[in-house]
Design a protein around this nucleic acid. Sequence first.
DNA 1: ATTTTGAACTTGCAAATTGCAAGCGTCTCA
DNA 2: TGAGACGCTTGCAATTTGCAAGTTCAAAAT
Lengths: 122, 122
Amino acid sequence: MIGDRWKLLILRDLALKGARRYRDFLEAGEGIATNILASRLIQLEAAGIVNRQQDPENAARTIYSLTPKGVDLVPVLLAMIAWSAQWDPETEVPVRFERALKRNPKALAKEIRDELPKPVGE
Amino acid sequence: MIGDRWKLLILRDLALKGARRYRDFLEAGEGIATNILASRLIQLEAAGIVNRQQDPENAARTIYSLTPKGVDLVPVLLAMIAWSAQWDPETEVPVRFERALKRNPKALAKEIRDELPKPVGE
DNA sequence: ATTTTGAACTTGCAAATTGCAAGCGTCTCA
DNA sequence: TGAGACGCTTGCAATTTGCAAGTTCAAAAT
């Protein structure tokens, strides 16, 4: 399910970069095509990993968020980031983040979970 | 680099299923095509994640193994397995393994590392 | 010494997936 | 009521995948 470049990047944006809207993903830097983004969001929603909801403040907008099943992927993302930080010189990880990750990954995962925007209506 | 279905499965086979030869991957059950397997092994080798060596006991054979960079991906694999065990009823994880994974993932990672076949000549 | 087997690929080609550009439908705000 | 913004969908060319059928080279069998 997750062995797919784009889905992992979408999840990273949701979990760690505060992305919540279609535009956020499109503009996240890696250059996902709009049709691919739409298809991946559908697949992630079908898999119960992300929620799609209308913004109650503006019906023209959609808000995406992680389900509990999606939140539970945070440790996977963190493990990948830890590996990249160590082995891939092109990956830029904030020093503070990298340190927290090495010292106490569980605590960092909890911190991220707590700071996640909640799905509308909770 | 790793956001690719087949590479992740190859790494899983190398790290957790004792796969060491081309045939092992081909027959691992998921049905990778032989041309795709060859291309993925080339990419993994180019990325410094796997070693390719001739079997000293039989020059017709090739032995694949994880480099240190590849071994460091074990925690990523374990995080994915933990998630699958919890959320995907189709994923079958041995109970002993799942328990060890929940209780002390670091210790399990070390155990796996220690049991890994070493590259030829070490 | 020659043939056969087995392991690790390579090649050709059809089918599926991706990426790009353009367009569409709905909602908001002036 | 008209102009944007937003979240998509569509069409099409280019890339990637999957399958089947070779090919190469070392080892084992005859």
